[in-house]
């Protein structure tokens, strides 16, 4: 299993803030996003231009490998400060 978290506009668009997703072996973030979109079309928002992702609280690209037990987050560009 992995934990997937969504924030800000993406959380509202997809209507989920957190979910557990079954994962038995490592997979690229981009491949995981495809799985999510196949399961529910709402996840297309994650594949939109400019969406960022973080793996275990560190910024990564969609080429990063996710492994069981990881926490993966998707969010729009940040706007703090």
């Amino acid at each position: 299993m992995i934990t997937i978290r969504l924030f800000a506009r993406l959380r509202e668009q997809i209507g989920i803030s957190q979910l557990q997703w079954p994962l038995d072996e490592s997979i690229a973030v981009s491949a995981l996003v495809k799985q999510l979109m196949d399961a529910n079309g709402m996840w297309r928002h994650v594949a939109e231009h400019q969406v960022l992702c973080a793996l275990n609280h560190q910024h990564v690209t969609f080429n990063a490998e996710v492994k069981p037990g990881d926490e993966l987050a998707f969010f729009p560009p940040v706007t703090g400060g």
């Binding site: 800000a8 973080a54 729009p76 940040v78 706007t79 703090g80 400060g81």
Partner: peptide
């Protein structure tokens, strides 16, 4: 530190303007 805060730290601002809530977009200048 301020420049990095604007582009790296995971904070998101949502403004209420004339009764509507709007997520702010990141500025190119930041």
């Amino acid at each position: 530190i301020m420049d990095q805060l604007k582009t790296c730290a995971p904070f998101w601002k949502k403004e209420t303007r004339q009764g509507q809530s709007i997520w702010l977009e990141q500025r190119d200048s930041d």
